[in-house]
Amino acid sequence: MSMKQAKWLVATLLILGVMTYLWGRAPSKLSTDVPVTGTLTQVETPDDCQLKGEGCTITIDDLGDFRVAMPATVAPLKKFDFTVEPLGEAARSVGSVRVDFEMVDMDMGINAYRLERLADGHYQATVILPVCTTDRSDWLANLTIHSTEGAYLLRLPFAVDRSRPSEG
């Protein structure tokens, strides 16, 4: 093998390695999803929205109502389902739903999920949140709903449960 061929081989392997690393870290961030029409509109969420447990209903002008929920207990490193239910006519115009979890003023890595549309019209993703080494529990679920009317962002605060029930 000539020196020129060896350089090309090393360069190719390096590029493949970087691409594999990026794909493994954040495949959802590498997609080219764009809203069907319009810009990203931030929606005010009600102050009394309790995301955990029964969830809450959020109204998006020109789109309709959505029920957003997660279990009453959400602990780090434990799987849970995040669910969005378009109510009434809202279901007709929804294209895709994503949620990105972030801790306020703390880098917890990429925690983004594309919700899958189920047969009953709900959107759902199974989520696992990382552990915060400083014992913080304040999170935001940044929910993005892409529709024929545009894209909408809802920033929903919640807290993870730090105390774990005893097992045994």
Rank of each mutant, 00 (worst) to 15 (best):
G55Y: 06
G150F: 12
C56M: 03
A125G: 05
F158N: 06
D161Q: 09
C132P: 03
V131H: 14
P46R: 07
V127D: 12
V43G: 04
P130R: 04
V99I: 02
G55N: 00
S2H: 03
S163E: 10
Y152D: 13
Q5C: 02
R25H: 01
V104S: 04
V94E: 00
E89K: 15
M106D: 05
T134K: 06
I145M: 07
D107I: 06
D65T: 09
I60M: 10
W23V: 03
L143C: 00
M70E: 12
T39C: 01
M1P: 00
L153Y: 13
K29P: 00
R92I: 12
K7L: 14
L87P: 09
I110P: 02
G88W: 07
E44L: 03
L143W: 03
Q5N: 10
T134A: 13
V131F: 15
V43C: 11
L63S: 10
D120S: 09
G150M: 11
A69P: 01
M1Y: 12
M19H: 06
A151N: 14
P165M: 05
P86V: 01
A125D: 03
S2Y: 04
G17T: 05
A75R: 15
G17W: 02
V68I: 08
G64Y: 10
V97Y: 00
Y123D: 05
Y113V: 10
D81G: 02
L156N: 01
L118G: 15
T37N: 09
I15M: 09
G88I: 06
R117M: 13
R114K: 14
W8G: 15
L40F: 02
M1H: 06
W23K: 09
S147A: 09
L16G: 05
L143P: 02
D120V: 09
P165S: 03
L16R: 03
D61C: 04
T134H: 09
D107S: 03
D62Y: 07
I58L: 07
L156S: 12
K4L: 12
A11G: 00
S93E: 08
A26G: 07
A72R: 08
S96W: 06
V84Q: 11
S31C: 07
A75T: 15
L14V: 12
L115V: 08
G17A: 05
I128H: 00
Q124R: 15
I128A: 04
P35V: 11
G95N: 15
T59F: 14
P71R: 04
K78H: 15
